[in-house]
Amino acid sequence: MTDDDRPTSRFEAAFRAWARRAPVTPADVAAKRVGARIDASSRHAPGPAVWVQRLAVACGLVLVVASGVLLWRNGTPPPIPSPAVEVPPMLPDNVVIFWLDAETPVYFIVKPVSDDPGGTP
């Protein structure tokens, strides 16, 4: 199949003609427009004072973010002991306390050893 026989060759010929049309705006007019926009943008370019302000804001943001990250990485501070938890009074020797948690003690009372050895005679 030659190029001319290809089904798209008619499209490509039409595409070439379509694409090669001159732009609506002539090149010299476009050059003036671009030049005017360059002039306008250079006139409105931010001065050093604006850059100093932007830099200060950026530094402030960096400080806030950095301190936030540091706080987060160091974890939450240890919990303050609750004043509601009472310190147990002095206990006799035969009492043992197990703390299930900060507020739940379990008392075990050990039976005192009697003089009677017990058991079978």
Partner: peptide
């Protein structure tokens, strides 16, 4: 000079 550059490239780029 940039104005002349724009003039030289305009048609090709728009196409």
């Amino acid at each position: 000079a940039y104005g002349s550059v724009v003039e030289a490239c305009w048609d090709d780029l728009v196409r």
